[in-house]
Nucleic acid binder design. Structure first.
Lengths: 205, 205
DNA sequence: CAAGTCATCAATCAAATGATTGATTGAATG
DNA sequence: CATTCAATCAATCATTTGATTGATGACTTG
């Protein structure tokens, strides 16, 4: 994380805030936002509580920091692979793959996300940070649906708005469940594909 | 809630626990589980904190009480109308109507539900109470899907398990969003119907 | 009505917790 | 080397908060 010699001593505010955000996220996964304690975070980072408050003035700001670090994770997720040349259906499939990878490799991300979404309902400041996250995601799905309909891969009678709600709800709902058999996600995605698929097409998938 | 004269004086433990659960649920909607304070509940019920603890020994027990009151609400929801004689598709539609009514008339129920589901991830005791709720709901949807496929109303290639995840996820996801246009729910349900509909059928819906 | 139980409250406790203070240390600057 | 400033910590504060205690008041019952 920093220098190997001189561990945790005199880091820059930026590095500290990053470490603090990471520790906070880990603790949120363990205890939830309600169980998040500044002391615990400080201990995990290896600094004094006062130092924590030096870098992050209040708990409010701390939650915002976490929300923001989550936002960055989401942003990064969506700039990796160039895929503009693919059909909407292909790109949607990649969207499913992306989500599956995240759910598999970094389940904490979705847990913290879920936790913060719950909090956003009451905390306008958090809501403001979270809104663009889902908003953007939703927009991507909606656009892919609309394009996919135009390209004839998706049902012509799809209503993109609620269909996006359905898809995103299904994905988030999946993460909430204690996981079952290992191919549960594959089955869910397959079902989603069939749900939006244009039935007039021949069997290809 | 009780006698008009002699308000709030000397209720039975049963009546008190009901009132406490109601107050707690209202407060959870306002401040979340994390913001739930025994003092606030007592104040809202109109009793002393000590009296609250007399009826509900600990905060743990309090959360369990709330979870349990929620469970009862869900149970009641599912015994009202006799519908065994209807087709699976009709019964599924009624399920959508039921859910829509709840989301419309008693949005707090779903909010508290959502809140507790989040907590259930960390609190095994809560998880135990919540599990049968979703489990039962999921089972109902799964059965209706299977029957509906058999009756030819639903897509023959539906995989009931993930399809139930999709439907339930869509409904819960809907409740999480700040509500948009008034017919948003109708559109969502319509989309869900199309998603599971047997495409070989003529246009009727 | 006397006795006993149930319900209630004012007062208080002890622990947890977010935050502050004032002093200290280390690295850059000139 | 002296100065300055960012980073750090031990100690402490002020509240909040879940819970308890001991006394008092109301029903019920024999």
């Amino acid at each position: 994380m920093s220098d190997a010699y001189a561990p945790n001593r005199r880091e820059s505010t930026d590095a500290r805030r990053t470490a603090i955000a990471a520790a906070a996220r880990a603790l949120i996964v363990e205890k939830g936002v309600e169980g998040l304690r500044t002391r615990d975070i400080a201990e995990r980072v290896g600094i004094n509580v006062a130092t924590l408050h030096y870098h992050v003035p209040s708990k409010e700001a701390l939650i915002e920091l976490v929300a923001d670090s989550l936002r960055q994770d989401f942003m990064n997720q969506h700039v990796t692979r160039p895929r503009a040349h693919l059909s909407a259906r292909r790109r949607m499939d990649l969207e499913f793959v992306d989500f599956g990878e995240m759910a598999e490799e970094r389940p904490e991300v979705m847990q913290v996300f879920s936790e913060l979404m719950e909090r956003a309902r009451r905390d306008e400041r958090i809501a403001e940070i979270m809104r663009p996250l889902i908003g953007k995601w939703r927009q991507i799905v909606k656009n892919l649906l609309t394009e996919g309909i135009g390209e004839g891969d998706y049902r012509a009678d799809i209503d993109a708005e609620p269909c996006a709600t359905m898809i995103i709800g299904a994905l988030i709902g999946f993460c909430r469940n204690r996981h079952h058999d290992p191919d549960a996600y594959e089955r869910l995605v397959a079902e989603l594909r069939r749900a939006i698929r244009n039935p007039s097409l021949s069997i290809e998938d």
